[in-house]
Design a protein around this nucleic acid. Structure first.
Lengths: 271, 271
DNA sequence: AGCAAAATGGAACAGATATTCCAAATGCGT
DNA sequence: ACGCATTTGGAATATCTGTTCCATTTTGCT
């Protein structure tokens, strides 16, 4: 009873499950039914837990895995663990490998960054909370003037947003720290501030956010982790997790949010 | 070193992380940073995997768990496994779900832009000619000083490249037309110019390219179609076709090339 | 520079988990 | 009802994972 190759994707898994389920004896059928209804639990449960939940012995569940084409539970579990959250085989180590191999050719690097970008985008839909996004759009759309700050590596994003808002005739002002000028006085209570910052957070951005929050100005933050100094300051947080490797941050996902945010604000204003 | 109660919810966990992160030594800080950026992976990874990804020893990661208030990794993992609400429904269904929302809602737009970005990236590997890319890397890596120009919507890309090159200590200069100053005199024959421009091509960029070409300076162009004014001027052309959504250009693919180009130039220089 | 305290790496240990095997039970055809 | 084939339960085993401990290195202070 050597069953063909093990499913390589979740979809294949589901097809195989369906195909196999009909001709299964009682206990194994229980496994199939439970798995069909709780596919997601495979990634985080032990065989013992799965077996008990399905009402069978661990050994029975084991046999089920083999019938599905895997060598055992561990192999089946790996499929679901890897596919969980974009299923990226982490990039920092892959890029490390690239370095070690001395493989610095442009095309090779490009392929890597394309992959990183694609993963970031897939991941994006999970890491951005729709509700926060709507809230952010509301805040920015109802502001008198939208102030934008983003320094260093966030500057490209900030400048893109400034450009997009300008194109849609949304009043916007891009802040920079050129010449150490402090333009925070330009930010009025009826305005809103959009801050873009990623770890390590630049002090200038944090300072600006803190000072305008103290004056009760609404702040939307586009940032990397849910845990960061901006949360404490009462900003509306949009989280974007991006694959980061030293100086090489693929901004794909971040820019995507930036565009969507700009477009939504523009659309809301027009109505 | 018994720290208070262990966090009982993910939110509590994040708060604790934030609170604790500041006063942590190097290796433990690495753990905190990695966890902050990949909280979701705790549920499906082993200590060994987490430790390696964070770049520390398993024992260091263990200590981190204890500082967070757990008895060990297993207890910390339990929190995330219990709160685990599968990566399912997966990417495509999630996308569909977002699409069902109101016409101009933020999430809806985000879904569209993610799609646009993804297809752009998919096309990218086909539209960029490996040979031209290598040639571009050569030119820029052997230049004395790399000049970068990109205006309006290309400005974010230009500023990103300037930032990346700076980070890698490649001598670079970002040109802008602020104040109508003409800094073309700064471009010497042994330098190279990287021009980023998309239809409609901005006159300032074309002018600059023309004037430096007349002086025999190497020019690399990051642009959209193979047929454009820059080709005639003898520039090395990198073509990026980007999928637009509405009036907005998703810069995903363009930025991807920009990163790869910068990284390759940086790597080439170091050798 | 010299000392004490803190942090770190690595290997040894303990515990849990997956996996296998075989005896007992069940179903099925004659 | 009998015997054969299939299925099942449960305990024994092998492997993998978490955890701890201690020698070594690093850091901070006088």
């Amino acid at each position: 009873m050597t069953h063909a190759a093990a499913p390589a994707t979740v979809r294949e898994f589901e097809e195989k499950l369906l195909e196999v389920a009909a001709s299964l004896p009682k206990r194994l059928k229980q496994c199939a039914d439970y798995v069909a209804a709780n596919t997601d639990r495979i990634a985080v449960s032990t065989v013992a837990e799965m077996a008990e939940a399905a009402g069978v012995q661990p050994s029975a569940f084991m046999r089920f895995c083999q019938i599905m084409g895997f060598s055992g539970y561990s192999e089946m579990q790996r499929l679901f663990r890897e596919n969980y959250v974009g299923g990226w085989p982490d990039y920092s180590t892959r890029l490390d490998h690239l370095r070690e191999m001395g493989e610095h050719s442009g095309p090779r690097l490009l392929a890597e960054f394309v992959e990183a970008g694609r993963s970031s985008l897939e991941n994006l839909l999970k890491s951005v909370d729709p509700q926060s996004l709507e809230e952010a759009v509301d805040l920015l759309a109802s502001a008198n003037l939208v102030h934008i700050i983003g320094l260093r590596r966030s500057f490209p994003v900030a400048s893109y947003i400034a450009y997009a808002l300008e194109k849609m005739q949304v009043p916007a002002m891009l802040h920079s720290v050129a010449g150490r000028l402090d333009s925070s006085a330009a930010i009025r209570p009826s305005d809103a501030l959009l801050a873009i910052t990623f770890s390590p957070y630049s002090a200038e951005t944090l300072d600006l956010v803190e000072s305008v929050r103290a004056r009760g100005v609404a702040v939307v933050a586009l940032t990397d982790t849910a845990v960061n100094p901006l949360r404490k300051m009462g900003a509306t947080i949009l989280t974007v997790s991006e694959v980061d490797f030293g100086a090489f941050r693929s901004l794909s996902a971040t820019l995507c949010v930036a565009i969507a945010l700009s477009a939504a604000v523009g659309a809301r204003r027009k109505v």
